[in-house]
Design a protein around this nucleic acid. Sequence first.
DNA 1: CGTTGTATTTCCAACGTTGTAGGAGCGACT
DNA 2: AGTCGCTCCTACAACGTTGGAAATACAACG
Lengths: 363, 363
Amino acid sequence: MAATMHDVARVAGVSVKTVSNVINDYPYVRDATRERVRSAIEALDYRPNLSARGLRSGKTGVIGLAIPELRQNYFAELADAVIRAAERRNVAVLVDQTGATREGEIEVLAGHRLRLTDGILFSPEQLGQDDIALLRVPFPLVLLGERMFDGPTDHVTMHNVGSARVATEHLLEIGRRRIAVIGAHPTHPDDIRSANLRVRGYREALAAAGIPYDPALVRVAAPWHRENGAAAMRDLLADGVEFDAVFTFNDTLGLGALRTLGQAGVRVPEDVALIGLDNIDEARFSVPSMSSVDPGRDQIAEVAVDLLIERINEKGDPAPPRQILADFRVAARESTGFVDPEPGIASAVSPSVLAEHPAVHGG
Amino acid sequence: MAATMHDVARVAGVSVKTVSNVINDYPYVRDATRERVRSAIEALDYRPNLSARGLRSGKTGVIGLAIPELRQNYFAELADAVIRAAERRNVAVLVDQTGATREGEIEVLAGHRLRLTDGILFSPEQLGQDDIALLRVPFPLVLLGERMFDGPTDHVTMHNVGSARVATEHLLEIGRRRIAVIGAHPTHPDDIRSANLRVRGYREALAAAGIPYDPALVRVAAPWHRENGAAAMRDLLADGVEFDAVFTFNDTLGLGALRTLGQAGVRVPEDVALIGLDNIDEARFSVPSMSSVDPGRDQIAEVAVDLLIERINEKGDPAPPRQILADFRVAARESTGFVDPEPGIASAVSPSVLAEHPAVHGG
DNA sequence: CGTTGTATTTCCAACGTTGTAGGAGCGACT
DNA sequence: AGTCGCTCCTACAACGTTGGAAATACAACG
């Protein structure tokens, strides 16, 4: 049977409340007493019962992370970053997979899953702008990703327009003029979600360079999985559209496209340059290694955890929702004609950086 | 303020205990009463407070999963499978990353992390056979992976020897005779850990085919990361050793090796055939797609969660520790001369199966 | 030497749930 | 009628912790 606070109190010769005070760093405890309690804790290998603490204090010290699927690299890396950030703040993370289904995501918001948590970080994939109303939930919620905007919650996201613009600019800078795009969504153009924001960034870069926009170069692919990247590239090649570069809206699409290009005998970057977006680890190890835009995932995780903890500890009227955009930068690799310092042994933080782009913060 | 059992009791006109009984499916509740309680629960949108339940019952309904790093694909896919398996059993999963450090892994066993959990699934990467004593912990613990054997806990693992043997046999079947290996560890050959077990499987297959063992073909690579696979392959090529096939001890090594082969202009599979082990999603999408041995990860996750829950609910003297080996099979793809049914669009469960190998179960 | 103020400690209740024990109602059997 | 056995329900205590208030100690002050 594990030791309780009462056991510690008995051994130290104090009341349970004094033990509690020591544990919670209450200042008015004599040093000698504190020391006695400390050594009793040590001697009994006492650990506070978190259920009891949670019951009494209303906080469990656990946050939830709801994502579509861990097996998608992007989310695995996001979860990795979130767990690290949470650990630094002494918070544990319950991971829930929605399976990328609408029902799964609605269940998260209904609070039927992830019950033991003080608040939830949520990265929706199926819910969109029309579902904003669902975000009005009775628990702290911080949104990740880029599918819903101007909702009632804090929101931490990459800079879609900016990232897409610098990706396109990168291709323009190396002299490409017929830049295809893979990953558009067949939705209403007013739609604010990321696919459209990225198309917007692409068009901004083209316009700034004085290059006409050609709809034949913009390819639909949804969801952003490898197979759809591969398929879109096959279509592009089959259609006989002329192009000398591709910007895929995420790295997974890019890896699929890269595979198709390889099979078709198209040389990368000589015939077609390619850049992705997300900068997942895998991008450094494809053949050729794939250029990408790093959307600031670690920063997103850190900021999101901070915001959530802030909300959890918030007293009184809630502050207005905030939207944070992360910094982003281009990681240039072989697929756009750059050479990794050590091919295949790139360091964890890729040093092959072309440019840093501080993003807008605040809401 | 969220509704409590007392609120429900008041609305339904019964005692709190009756509400509790309804929730816990206690049989002796009149249908009419049950119905009244149910609709009160519905009306108030009541959810049991899990901290209180945990305090009273001693169980939190949460299990811990301690792995090195989510950003390693293998562990992301393992975590994915574990979370799915746990969800089916109404259990939530707290994920902890040890960072692949010895200290992190020792902390897990010391019980300093993952406190709110009823038990832990642990996949060690740094601890080895010498650390068996550390496994004698005062909470339910099920070991995943293949670094420690014959310990005091249940253990679910892939069949290292068998998987390595069929991988090698697969290369032999397609006519290769000079089969290199990447991923050996520079340890004592008695060492029981997976690298050596895989070497053993490799040698068994060679011996069965009457092919002499050539130490020059066995390459050290540790840890099993892409960069080390790439480096080992560079060494292999630089040394001028003749070989017509490679078996890498995991897929990540294989992808690194594949990259080096591509850069060096060596054709796969024409000049060198390649097979990995783990069958991570990524293997289906490399260029060329990579053959691998599927070690039965989903089965491992299911069985491990079952064993852990069984241990958590175990009363009285603990049953003796069990060791479970998962079934494994070869997934043949382009890197060994097979063609995916739909290149780049392989289905989730790869249909390109050569052979199934039911493994030994039991302890 | 009592008074005041501040430092330190203790006491008590409460958080929301479930285990235990027991009571009420009712039909069946002696 | 009394007893038994079953169904259904309730009262109470307890799980281990912390908030709040109250009690005690101790120093400084008048």
